[in-house]
Each structure stands twice: as structure tokens, then as C-alpha cells.
């Protein structure tokens, strides 16, 4: 199971990112979200969305084993065990493994909670076993 995105359907509203920060940190702060929207304006006029593929590369390099896998297969950060070493960050090809110590005392990433999908009005995001199950 992982999160998928159809860039063509994204309207850049950022509701997903507020929902994400609320779930991860209990805060209203899209800067602390685990997915990224890159607006490409004025040309070519599209949004590029970066989401976690749950590949596990971050967990593989974590020296404190703070990144764990839950029963549905999602990798999540146990905040208490993270030492902010940033080893995970360059491993992430999608650039959605975050350490911003000015914002949080831990690394963070997508834990596949699904709140982003719940608030996306355009069907740009979905969770599935394979990409073909697009909404």
C-alpha cells in the first residue's frame, strides 16, 4: 500500500498538507507536511506533487532504527528515537523525507494515514496496492 498522485488533477490547494501536519504533529502547519506541491507557474501551469512511495530506503539507513514499519506496510518515524542525524534525507529519491530542526525536533515522513486523500476534492491522491487503481 502506498500513496499515489495524479499531477494533472492537483489544483494546488494544499488542503492535503494541512491535514497531514494535523495528523503528524497535531498542528496547522503545511510546512510540516510529508508531501510537497511544487507549482509550475506561469508556465507550464501545472503542479508537481511529491509523495512517499514507502520504498523503505530511509529506514534502511537510519542508525537509531527510528523509522519503523506498521502492519499495513507503511514506514513511519518514531519521533522519540530520532536523533536528527539526517542520514535518511539524501536517501529519499522523492525528496519527501524531512528534517527541519527549526520546525520540529524529529525527522518526519508520510505514515499513510490517509487524511490527505480524505480532503482532496479533485481525486488527485489515492492509496492503493498498485497505481492502476486510480480513483
Amino acid at each position: 500500500m502506498r500513496l499515489y498522485v495524479d499531477n494533472a488533477k492537483c489544483s494546488g490547494c494544499n488542503a492535503c498538507r494541512v491535514a497531514c501536519s494535523l495528523n503528524l504533529f497535531g498542528e496547522n502547519n503545511p510546512k510540516k507536511a510529508a508531501l510537497v506541491i511544487e507549482p509550475q507557474f506561469p508556465a507550464p501551469g501545472v503542479y508537481n506533487v511529491k509523495v512517499c512511495t514507502q520504498c523503505g530506503d530511509c529506514a534502511a539507513v537510519c542508525p537509531t532504527e527510528a523509522i519503523k514499519q506498521d502492519e499495513q506496510g507503511a514506514y513511519y518515524v518514531n519521533f522519540d528515537e530520532c536523533n536528527l542525524c539526517e542520514a535518511c534525507v539524501p536517501e529519499c529519491k522523492e525528496e519527501v523525507m524531512f528534517v527541519r530542526s527549526e520546525l520540529a525536533n524529529t525527522a518526519w515522513k508520510c505514515n499513510l494515514c490517509g487524511d490527505c486523500v480524505a480532503v482532496c476534492g479533485t481525486g488527485a491522491l489515492w492509496i492503493a496496492e498498485t497505481e492502476a487503481v486510480a480513483a
Binding site: S11, G12, C13, G121
Partner: peptide, 19 residues
């Protein structure tokens, strides 16, 4: 029209971005 463009937090974007 090429893209639906939303204001912050909007699930029903009225903004139509055009080429």
C-alpha cells in the same frame, strides 16, 4: 483550459488556468 487552479484549502477549485 489546461489546469484547475485552487485557492488555499479549496476542494472545488473555480480557477481555470488557460493556455
Amino acid at each position: 483550459v489546461i489546469t484547475d487552479k485552487a485557492c488555499f484549502g479549496c476542494p472545488c477549485p473555480c480557477g481555470k488556468y488557460s493556455r
